[in-house]
Write a protein that binds this DNA or RNA. Structure first.
Lengths: 332, 332
DNA sequence: TTGAAAGCGCTACCAC
DNA sequence: GTGGTAGCGCTTTCAA
């Protein structure tokens, strides 16, 4: 049996409603009384029963995150950042690695205040209790819940323009040309559009396809690329994990960044700065994305703001010294 | 307002205690009544309120898992397997990626039935409510909670003996000789003890140190090793992630497994079978480990069994064809 | 400033 | 078989 407010009331010789108020730091309780009650609570090793609290207040102060099966660094970084934001707002976060539909159902039974559906691999077939605030990210857009997304196309587009402004004409894109992954398709599109706009040809030399999004895929692609006689002066690549591999290959070829080659990577996460060569990167900064997601969900929960059904966040370039102009003067 | 059993009672014209019984499939309700009530519940879109249920039954049917900051494949596989076991036992699992102490505190407030502390990076300073069943894994052994561990030393020990039985005399170990990671230290010790026991010398040629436990660490170490003139006939390595890199290197050197070199890896997870070359591996099969952990926690919760403070699980070798005798005849 | 009492949604017990 | 009711631990009126 754990200790309840009644126990505290008994010991401190007050009514249990007074204890409740004291515990909630209500101004209605005399400081002396409050102090004594708090002391007794501590002595007794009292742990508030959230279950009971939630039952009456109809607030769990908890959000659920339907967790994908993720291996990608950038995505697990996002989950971590979301957790930080949640804690900062005095909420808890409950993760579930079950199937999305199962996860949401469970969250609902626990009466969480809101749910984030994150990178669902399976379609959201069910319509859940319409009162449950749900926010999605990276889910196909034909779902009834607000979605916070990221402008992938513009990210790579901006990267091309940035390199071009530095004077680069020979720019290559290393990425995974998946048929099904919308995000990868968008990135590639951004590359083509930008190159076209500034009058640079896109041929097979300028697009290097990887076999996936892992570290080794980047490594293998970069190795193939770097063996060529006619090297690009600048490289754009599609993810953090790819970057790791690409840098290894660049190292093995004894190339200096940015003296021999400029590199800009997708995924604006802090880990970019901790690579063997810190990389300039483009994308929505992960902390901003996390903050936006959590604040949006909180708005949904508190009904303080109505949300647009789709919100696409715009990318930023974060300079970390891996790009210069092609004549080898550092530009960032 | 979500619908409650009272709403159901009103609509179906019975008392709400009958509804409660029907919903819990009690034999005390006439099948007809039950059927009708269930139908009404469905029509109304009723979702049981676990919060209320938990309050009275003092059971949340949920266990909490204090989630480490993991990057290692084998560990996230373990979490997934644990989740499967939990679901199989009609429980829910709540994950927290917060600091362990914070996580347990939160779980306690939510009155979870039990907690698994998994690979805690920070020491467990606090003693939590002594009534909360807690099970740990991979945590330093000077904690007051039962711990389920894995015999790392014996794993590698058995691997050496296995290779030796096949006739190998030139056996190398590729692993991360961390000063602080007890598990890595134990693996290395297992190698030394076994080699010593069968009268083989351990020199710098037989131990190849990696710089970490990532994929690339394995790749880099293997490349260095394979350049030697005097190749070992068999290789033992310390983790799944290392294996991935090692196989890439082996491939690049155009070596055949097991014809040119036998490989056995630590980490007994199914992914081993899905590598470019399926690898024979040693360790406690991850599903067995997960099952043991969940069952143990459930025992703790239901007090059906008392647990020893430390339980160390013994490894198995799972043969997947990557080992032969040195004269190139497949052995497994 | 404190206390009494209602009630959150549900289970479990006891009557009928 | 079914209904009435107490009570889980807490917050929140309302009275004193």
């Amino acid at each position: 049996m754990s200790v309840t407010i009644k126990d505290i009331a008994q010991v401190s010789g007050v009514s249990y409603s007074t204890v409740s108020k004291a515990l909630n730091d209500s101004p209605l309780v005399k400081p002396d009384t409050k102090k004594k009650i708090l002391q007794v609570a501590k002595d007794l090793g009292y742990t508030p029963n959230f279950v009971a609290k939630n039952l009456v207040s109809k607030k769990s102060n908890t959000i659920g995150l339907a967790w994908p099966t993720i291996e990608q660094t950038a995505l697990s970084t996002l989950v971590t950042e979301i957790n930080k934001q949640v804690v900062k707002n005095n909420y808890f976060m409950m993760l579930s690695i079950n199937d999305t539909n199962h996860a949401v159902e469970m969250f609902q039974k626990f009466r969480v205040d809101g749910v984030i559906i994150f990178e669902a691999e399976t379609p959201l077939v069910k319509t859940f209790d319409s009162n449950l605030p749900i926010l999605t990210h990276g889910v196909s857009s034909n779902n009834p819940y607000p979605i916070i997304d990221v402008n992938h196309r513009k990210s790579i587009y901006e990267a091309v323009l940035y390199l071009n402004r530095l004077g680069h004409k020979k720019i290559s894109y290393v990425g995974f040309p998946s048929q099904t992954d919308k995000r990868q398709i968008e990135k590639l599109k951004g590359f083509r559009v930008a190159m076209n706009e500034i009058g640079l040809k896109v041929d097979e030399d300028s697009i290097i396809s990887t076999d996936g999004l892992t570290w080794y895929d980047g490594y293998a692609a970069a190795k193939k690329l770097l063996q060529r006689s006619n090297l690009p002066t600048a490289l754009i690549n599609g993810s953090y994990d790819l970057s790791v591999g690409i840098l290894r290959a660049v190292n093995e070829f004894n190339l200096k960044v940015p003296e021999d080659i400029s590199i800009i990577s997708y995924d604006n996460i802090p880990q970019m700065a901790r690579l063997e060569t810190p990389l300039t990167s483009v994308g929505v900064p992960v902390n901003q994305l996390a903050e936006k997601m959590v604040n949006s969900l909180l708005d949904l929960i508190n009904k303080t703001n109505s949300l647009p059904l789709i919100e696409v966040m715009e990318p930023e370039i974060t300079k970390r010294g891996s790009c210069s102009n092609p004549t080898y003067k550092k530009a960032d």
